[in-house]
Design a binder for these strands. Sequence first.
DNA 1: CATATACCCATTGACGCCCATATAATCCCA
DNA 2: TGGGATTATATGGGCGTCAATGGGTATATG
Lengths: 153, 153
Amino acid sequence: MDLFVSKYINKIDKKGRVSLPSSFRNVLPKANRNEIILYKSIKTSSIEGCGVGRLKEIAKRINNLDFFSEDYDDFSTSIFSEIITTNIDKEGRFLIPEELKLYAGIKTEAAFFGQGHYFQIWEPKKGLKNTEDSRRRLLNEKKSLRMMLTQQK
Amino acid sequence: MDLFVSKYINKIDKKGRVSLPSSFRNVLPKANRNEIILYKSIKTSSIEGCGVGRLKEIAKRINNLDFFSEDYDDFSTSIFSEIITTNIDKEGRFLIPEELKLYAGIKTEAAFFGQGHYFQIWEPKKGLKNTEDSRRRLLNEKKSLRMMLTQQK
DNA sequence: CATATACCCATTGACGCCCATATAATCCCA
DNA sequence: TGGGATTATATGGGCGTCAATGGGTATATG
């Protein structure tokens, strides 16, 4: 499986270390299996993460923008300076930077949510609530979608 | 990781020395790991820096501008004639030239912002404000930051 | 000679590496 | 197929190393 899936809740120890779920580690390419990137989620109060490969993709895309445009600066500032790389130790653990923990309200436990090509890290309770909310939204949309489809004029 | 990423705030000591963040040092090729180039940012009141290898890339970018435009002269003058090479000591520190410190308003602390293939040095408060402004522009006006981060392949 | 800069050494705290354990998952063979 | 044996995972803690910082001294450069 080469996608981040499922949900895990792991403890943060006194040193601030937390295990990246084993199944997530296996998604990372064997070459860069000891490094991930983290950044603040744009829409939610969670941390998002993925392997460094995605970052290189992004770098390539930004590099294609006009070098002297304002967009170029805005993207590289908002992305590169906000991204944090963190190393994974031999036991599969890593440190969540203090700034990101504050942003997500994480203290003693971290909830990992697979999101396909990336994953999210939540304070457990907030994460569960977010799951419920998004499920509810989905059901509502489905309802209106079905209405739209079946409604004949 | 071969990109300048993340953000660091380091102190400038009495002698004017400041540590180049360790992760930035590692981006520099092992061959020229004791030398970087610095120049005034064209668009912001910050200092930009990178390894000497990137000079060629900068030259290429400028060359792509219309040769007879005013911009061409302005850019090549502003950049090439103002470039300063600086040595990094065995502890990973370097001196920020007085002129550049004045330009950026830097006094006791320097904030390093990764920008992918180069980095910026800001007076900390100005740098943080710039990050906020930059992010606001992207979120409000373009709405494309999320695409940049989540788009696949 | 005076100032600036490079080199050397020291300190502190953070982080990586190693070892250890408990629990869970998997295996493997009689 | 049952059940003991092996392996993997999550977690805890000791300790050495490295990064950031401070300062003394030699050296260069005008």
